[in-house]
Every structure is written in C-alpha cells, then in structure tokens.
Design a protein around this nucleic acid. Structure first.
Lengths: 336, 336
DNA sequence: ATACTAAATGTAATCGATTACATAATCGGC
DNA sequence: GCCGATTATGTAATCGATTACATTTAGTAT
C-alpha cells in the first residue's frame, strides 16, 4: 500500500504538504500542488481513510435506524436520505430494528463509539427521555413521528391535521357513520391519526361509538380482519378511514367479498399514498406523505447539525395532501 | 473520553491485558479479567472503534450497492442482507446508484480505501471485466444477476428456466399467440428472461413474430404502454408474459380499459412476486423470487469470503417457483 | 537594501487500540 | 524444591494521516 510518506518522499515535500494538497489545496502554492498531484496520480495513491477517521475522530457516515426497510414508506424515506447524503459526501449506514428496542439501543452505541457522526431515527420505540439525552450529546434527527414537546429536530407531517382532513372529507361527502382502522397504538403516529379522526368526528357532531375504532397493525390482513368486524355490526359504517393504505386495501377486499361495492356502498380513505394506491382498484383516496422529501430534509438538517449550526426551530412539518381518487366516492358524487 | 490506558491504570494492568480482555478473554486469568471488566464498567469505558479499525485495517462493514432502494425487489434483498449482517456483527453501508455507473465506480473506491471489508453488488452496469478485477482483489458477491462464465460468487435464481416455466404454463393452458413485455435490454436479467421465453416458444413450436416482444423498463407505465401496442395488432396475443409484476399490472390495466377481461380474454403472468401481486385484482400469477433469502445467502457467502474461505463453487442458484393465482386463468380452467 | 508581514512549507507529536516479542508467574512431575 | 513447560502479563513499536507550532521563503513598503 502506497502511503502519504511515499508520495511526500518522491514529490520532495513533507507529508504535511501532501496532506494539505488533499484537504486544503488553496493553501499550497500552485507549483507544489501540481507536483504532488502528479505523484499521487503516478503512484495511484489512495489515502487511508481509516487513519483519517481515527485521527479526525469523524467518519462522514450517518446512521439510519429503520423499523423495517422492506416497508415502502421507509424505503422511500431512506431513498431521500441517501440522495442528500451522497451529494454531501456522506455515507449511510443502515440498521433495521424489526421493531425491537434492543436493536435501537445497540444502534445508539454506534453513535457513542463515534462510528458515525450522526443519526436519523425513523423508529419510535425509544423513550422520550432517551431520545432527548442522546440528542443533547450527538447530532440526531427524528423523521416520521412528531413528538409533542420534544426539543429534538424532527421532520414529519402533521398526522393529526391530515387525519382530520381525511375524515372531514368523508363527512363532507355526507357520511354519518364513519369507522377508523388505526395502526398499532404503541406507535405515536397511530395515536395521532386517531386523534385527528376524533377531532373531525366531534367537531362535526357525528355520532360516535367506540366500536367504530378498531386497532390494526398496518398490515393488509389486519385491515381485512378489522373490516370484517365492522361488517358484523348491526349497523355497519358507510365509510372507513384506515391509518395506512395497506389496511385500506385489506378493508376494501373484505367489503368486496361481502358483496359491498366500493365506493358506492362503502367509502374508504387510506394514508401514505404508497405507489400501489393509484394502481389498486378502486384507486385509493389517501393522504400523500412526501416521503422522499422527508428523508432529504432530515438529512439536510442532520448535516447542518453536524456542522454545528444550532436551530431555534426544531420541528419541521412538511405538507401532506389529500389525494382524491376513486375509493371515497367523491368523483362519483361529482358526476351526479 | 475514557481510554484503554485509563482502564489499565486503575485496574493495575497493562493496556495489552485490557485489550485481551476485550478481544480474547479466554487468554486472561479469571481474576484479572473480572477486575478489568469491573473497571470498564465503573468508568463506563467504550473502546474507540475508529482506532481499532485503523490498527486492524478492517471495519466490520460491508457495502451494498443497489440500483434503487425504493424498489421493493431490492429493499427485500437488502432486508435479508441486513439481517444476516447484523447477526454476525457486521454493519451495512448502503449506496443507491440510480443506475448511474459513475456511482458504482465511486462505490468501488470505498473498497479500495478499505472503508468496507467487502461488497455486495445488486447492480449490473459494470463491465464484466471490472467486476472480475475487483473480485480478485476484494471480497465481492453478486446478487440478482447471473453472469455467464463469470467466476465471481453469485447468488441468483435461474432467470432463463423460470421464464421458460412461466411461458410454458401459458402454452399448457392452450395459448398459441403469446407476447412478452421484457425489461430494459441493457440489463442481463431482462435478456435472460427473453431467452427463457423464446426457448419455450420454439420448443413448443408456437408461432412467433418479433412484434410480440416489446421492451419496457420495469415500470407500471411501460407495461401499460406496451400492452396498448399489442392490442393494436391485427391479431392481438391471447396471453402475455411480463418480465416483472409491475409491468404485468400495467398490461392488465391497459387490457381492462380496452374492454378485455383478465384472465378470460387475456392471460397474464408476471415475475418477482412482489407483495402487491397477491392483492392486485386479478391476483397475479407470477414467478416468486426468494428475495429475502437471496440477500441472506449473499451476505453469508460474503462473510465466508471475508474469513478467507475459498469456494470452488461460485454460482448459487436459488429456487424460484411459479405461483398460480388468477391472472393466468389456470384456476378458471380447472373449474371447467 | 532593509525591515517587516504574509504565505508556504517542514518537523514532529498525536490520535488509541493492537500485537510481536519479552518477561514473569504458575504448574506438574520427580 | 528444582527444572522445564505452559500460561499470563507487560513493554513498546506500530498503523498513517493530521495539525500545532516552528521555520523558511516570498512579497511589500520605505
């Protein structure tokens, strides 16, 4: 392995100069710089990055903690992160937690051991206090979940308002009996979406029964199963708001299998706007999250933090948008 | 920052002993070990991993190069890689290339600079010779594309045979005019799938016209558009084999919009078995790739390579399987 | 030409764990 | 209790780039 001292010797300069040519070329006279560069070329010298990391105590790497990379919502956020990171010469270390807190703690060790310069947390199993602690010591950005009152840089959408908007959309279409299939309630996102749903219901003085809220786990099957419960009610709902698109699709499948037409007999709204929600039949009305942009923004915030920029603002709420397609019946209504 | 020498001083031993306690505890007497461990505990000592990486010239990190992490086929493979990696204490550095070769070359520099101990390549833009070169110098595993005659450890399915099987399935169902929507032909996978398609056609002495093979780019829209071309033919095909599920769905959409029923008027088979293919209506008949397992196997091979194990076998072909659902009409045929 | 400032380069310490080699402690057998 | 073998521990060099500080060179004004 060619090392810096080899280059220095042949170029007839000191290693300090070689180092400067690489890290702050403007401080080296042009002649010298050219000479050094040509020797580097000639010897095909590659700096030992590990030595640099060690000496500088930084790695140009960020850790991304994801519950499950196989979920398209997360993989799109990661896509945005990766894009922003690589533009700035940063690398992305990916850690799947499979929703196990122990894996999250392990991941935090990477931070403590300086294996990464910062961390983006897409996960939500850690205690509020733990997150606060580490974010006071290391650059950390949360993405996807807004935690009330937590002064840690966060990129998210407003889950409460979006859910309210989705639900109000159903109310405006004339529905009076509206159900909600929420995600696992240990997740803050799910709780927020329930909150928004309830706000819409109460503000519009719609009748509410607790049986009209059922907990799923964000999977297609859980959407299907919870819908079956609704259908078994004496008076089933005429509209369902599901906390994500997958469950919305499951609910629609259950409805169809029971002879209901969507949207004619049952209106459905989902959340996330995953790729397939437009392909699905009926095309899903849903709340679009700017997933890729959330990732990008999160990485940009992290970059600034790592540079030492201190933000007064800590919560970045990106715009979400209700996308009206077929499953809610609005388009059908227009035609009438 | 507490360092090893601090621990050594307080425990009244040398740094060598502390290091041994951490790296090969069995070589240290129990008393000493306990004493050292308790001091480590007491001081809350965290070894400086960067120093270790530097000294040992290894990082316990592998690089995964992916065309696009937002594509579920790749994110599932990455899921398998991550799982196998974290079990063995390895970290995963993720690099999206967006199908730009320059990004692949950049990624290779990481290997040369020893920033990672090995690499898994899910991408296919590099020259055969380039891949061979780097794989002779560093631990490398290819996943997803089998490159004929290339002696580099590879995990893949048999794309040719699988395509043949998919096509023959359509032939057995009585179709005589079968079309193929292939993926971008710069991709080896696409070319292999075309090959398998052709084999089935010729071996069964089915009529063939070159207009019955159209090139898409693995997107829903391209499937839709190519299907429109087929529908515009004087004698349109009665069956279509698409090189991935997304294009199959696009094709089905186009068919439906033109008044055809699937599978009654048009049989369709896809490839990949992405999650949504079972939800789609009609549920897609498709070739299931063991994506997660491919990732896992690739990582396991890489781990062995990094340990120095030399394999005589270099191509690992995992089982793929034809999953018969609704879109091909086989179930309908059974009922008759 | 001189004196002074600014720019360019060099010298050598430094980051902290690992490990080859050297030394010391322990054990077993007689 | 002594010797050789084995096991445990210590000493100190080492990995290679970075950078504080020292020194030299170039540039400018008088």
């Amino acid at each position: 392995m060619v090392k810096m001292s080899d280059v220095a010797k042949i170029a007839n300069v000191s290693t300090a100069t070689v180092s400067r040519v690489l890290r702050s070329p403007e401080t080296v006279k042009e002649n010298t710089r050219k000479k050094v560069l040509s020797v580097i070329e000639e010897l095909n010298y590659q700096p030992n990055i590990l030595a640099r990391h060690f000496r500088r105590n930084e790695t140009n790497t960020v850790l991304v903690i994801v519950p499950n990379i196989m979920n398209t919502v997360f993989s799109e956020i990661v896509g945005g992160i990766e894009q922003a990171a690589s533009i700035s010469g940063y690398k992305v270390l990916l850690r799947n937690t499979n929703r196990d807190v122990r894996n999250e703690y392990e991941a935090i060790d990477h931070l403590k051991q300086r294996q990464v310069d910062g961390m983006i947390l897409l996960s939500e199993r850690l205690e509020k206090q733990t997150i606060l602690n580490i974010s006071q010591q290391y650059p950390v950005v949360l993405a996807s979940a807004y935690i009330e009152g937590l002064k840690v840089p966060t990129v998210s959408i407003d889950n409460i308002s979006s859910s309210r908007e989705a639900t109000e959309h159903l109310i405006k279409l004339g529905h009076k009996r509206i159900a909600h299939i929420c995600g696992s309630l240990f997740s803050l996102i799910s709780r927020d979406r329930v909150k928004g749903f309830n706000q819409a219901i109460y503000q519009n003085e719609i009748q509410m029964e607790s049986v009209l809220i059922q907990e799923g786990d964000f999977t297609f099957d859980s959407g299907y199963n919870q819908m079956l419960k609704f259908l078994a009610l004496d008076v089933p709902p005429t509209a369902v708001f599901a906390a994500n698109d997958e469950m919305a699709m499951g609910a629609i499948k259950a409805a169809k299998e029971n002879g209901l037409r969507v949207p004619e007999d049952l209106a459905v709204v989902g959340f996330d706007n995953i790729k397939f929600s437009s392909i699905f039949e009926p095309a899903l009305t849903t709340i679009a999250q700017p997933k890729y942009e959330m990732g990008k923004k999160a990485m940009e915030l992290l970059l600034e933090q790592m540079k030492g920029v201190v933000h007064t603002k800590s919560q970045y709420v990106l715009d979400s948008k209700l996308i009206i397609r077929e499953s809610c019946g609005a388009k059908m209504a227009e035609l009438v």
